[in-house]
Nucleic acid binder design. Structure first.
Lengths: 263, 263
DNA sequence: CGTCACTTTGAGACGAGTCAATGACCGTGG
DNA sequence: CCACGGTCATTGACTCGTCTCAAAGTGACG
């Protein structure tokens, strides 16, 4: 599944095409992004890419695999507050707030591109459309966080799990690396537990529950969703909050919908 | 409690002084912010300032009172994903993502200043330090959201409540409108429930539990914290994530701590 | 002085956590 | 080639935090 040869420009290309769908860029601006210097880094699952409290000096573009941002309590319990897939620039926010609040950790074997803040700041300064794009990217990240928070507060385990699967699928498809209903998923059940605010044991039972509906097969490091509509209904999934394209969301549909199963 | 006469420049002043503590601004830049046109708006508790799905065209600076950002499910359940106090510019993110994901609602009687996006964009374009300050403000908001998410996922009701009280107190003191252990708090128990992912009934019981410790007196639209250290210990509160000042946080203390009560 | 919003109380139900053990898989080294 | 250790998935029995439903109490305001 993992590419063995990765060109820097190929990875940047994916980022640029994703970003430019919500923040239009001129040829000059795209070229400036493409010319960014970057160093490739590989890491195994559970390796720290950024350690908590660290003073970060480069941002991190995901080429392959999945990463998570962790907030950790001293008793060892932790919460994943964001997940990043190929094409995502995690840590873009560290350009303006370099002190990391939490860890950035690989959830699978990953390939990332590290891009110095200095270079990002340089092109941000030269091209106003690029700062705006970066700023917007951070705001959309926050929008995703809001939805995660609402789900944790107001949905049960099954709906939260279904929602996460729908979101990851949608984001992977948008990034052009998989179909939304059929993708590699290497994170463990413990990772899912940390992302959903559950225990690994309960994640396991929740997955069995979902499998038994027949809507989704998950296991063997893959997810296969056989009935997307049904899964989305359980989750109350409405992709508007991902802001995948430039404000295509009409006022009427910008609401999130509660799961149909809780009538 | 509520001021009857509010000058626009006085409110902007508070915003500028708060922002400039984490994003240093030149005199020119501060002057540009101070010269922003704004219209005063008053609203009663539970009034929508921004409706979900709306296309927002102005941002909103809190002069007095408290506001919340809501994500709502169609079955009526809702989650507060952010709370804003005096000096906060809520909706700054709407400058780059104008379609509102959720509602912005008054949690008490409020006075806000509405500032057109066009004007914010104009000065953001002219002064790079200002875009950076705005971007940073949004990133800090997201940092706060991360901590809320971690708390919802990994702390029990009592610790979550204690944490929220510590956070609001700290932010109010930083904004210069109250002391952190003694402040007006007009939000209802239902609002607290929506913010913490609980039911109003359980919020009530949790407050009784906290009151019985003697560390905090809450009621009558006021909060009085008699033992800050004890409350902070219950919450595992470490204000580093608020990024109140320009990176004063050392790597060693950037971790959040788990509540001492759960040893 | 009644209405309305908010707070408080009680009893019972249920979702999720805890603890503990077993099972499946996989890479590694003897 | 197989025994080993490690990580991850699964299961069972029991506990506990929080929800639900319902009702009553409090206080502000017209």
């Amino acid at each position: 599944m993992q590419r063995l040869t990765v060109s820097t420009s190929e990875a940047l290309d994916r980022f640029i095409s994703r970003v430019s769908r919500r923040s239009p860029l001129s040829d000059d601006e795209a070229a400036a992004l493409l010319a960014l210097p970057a160093t490739i880094q590989r890491a195994r699952g559970n390796a720290d890419i950024v350690s908590p409290g660290e003073l970060v000096e480069q941002s991190c573009l995901v080429v392959d695999g999945m990463l998570g941002r962790f907030v950790q309590m001293v008793d060892g319990r932790r919460q994943i507050t964001a997940m990043y897939v190929a094409g995502d620039m995690c840590d873009l926010h560290s350009v303006v707030v370099p002190r990391a609040d939490g860890a950035l950790q690989a959830l699978s074997n990953v390939v990332v591109l590290r891009i110095p803040h200095d270079d990002l700041r340089r092109i941000a300064k030269r091209y106003p459309a690029i700062v705006e794009a970066f700023w917007r990217d951070c705001v959309v990240d926050a929008s995703i966080q809001s939805v995660w928070m609402a789900n944790m507060g107001r949905l049960d385990a099954k709906a939260r799990m279904a929602h996460l699967l729908c979101e990851i699928g949608t984001r992977l498809e948008h990034a052009g690396v998989a179909k939304r209903d059929r993708f590699a998923f290497e994170a463990t059940q413990s990772h899912l537990a940390d992302a959903l605010g559950l225990t690994p044991v309960h994640v396991n039972r929740t997955l069995q529950d979902l499998r038994s509906t027949g809507f989704v097969a998950i296991g063997n490091r893959r997810v296969e969703i056989s009935d997307w509509a049904a899964l989305a209904a359980i989750a109350g999934f409405d992709p508007a909050y991902l802001h995948l394209d430039q404000d295509t969301v009409s006022a009427a549909t910008a609401w999130r919908h509660a799961p149909a199963s809780r009538a």
